[in-house]
């Protein structure tokens, strides 16, 4: 018998002007993707026009996580906003390349790049 382990995804949200920033740490898979979906829905529902998903500390991403990100992208674009993903690790960027979704998302090297240099900062709030 094996221990399947605890939920291994931490989410933090913050507002930077009109943008909502979702910072993730851990693994996004078929088990944890619903947490990501709910956090994105909450952020958008709270009025964020633009959304930045910081995946700088994400160790694993699969197609279920991609599916959630695509849903978020559609919702944000429908409202005239921008949906950016911050990712620098090859193991994360690879799945965007394989699926061709690197062309659909705005992939950035840092949150600052995604927001632009003039965005004001604010304290993060714990999501889970």
């Amino acid at each position: 018998m094996l221990d399947s382990g605890p939920v291994d995804l931490d989410l933090q949200t913050s507002r930077q002007g009109e943008a909502g920033v979702l910072s993730l740490r851990g693994e996004i898979d078929v088990y944890t993707a619903p947490l990501l979906r709910q956090a994105l829905l909450d952020l958008i529902g709270q009025g964020a026009r633009d959304v930045v998903v910081d995946m700088g500390e994400v160790d694993f991403l699969d197609s279920t996580g991609l599916g959630v990100l695509v849903e978020g992208l559609k919702r944000v674009k429908t409202r005239g906003g921008e949906f950016s993903i911050v990712a620098t690790q090859d193991k994360i960027l690879k799945i965007f390349d394989i699926t061709g979704l690197n062309k659909a998302f705005l992939l950035r090297g840092s949150v600052e790049d995604a927001l632009g240099s003039s965005a004001p900062s604010s304290a993060p709030t714990a999501e889970s």
């Binding site: 018998m1 094996l2 221990d3 399947s4 382990g5 291994d8 693994e27 898979d29 078929v30 088990y31």
Partner: peptide, 28 residues
């Protein structure tokens, strides 16, 4: 330990048998 998942060595060197539930994918 989580009920339902099992890993054992056989002819295939590694065999994992688990319920078809998302919480087991990480372990696999």
């Amino acid at each position: 330990m989580t009920e339902g998942g099992a890993v054992r060595a056989r002819e295939a060197e590694l065999e994992v048998e688990f319920p078809p539930k998302p919480e087991f994918v990480r372990m696999v």
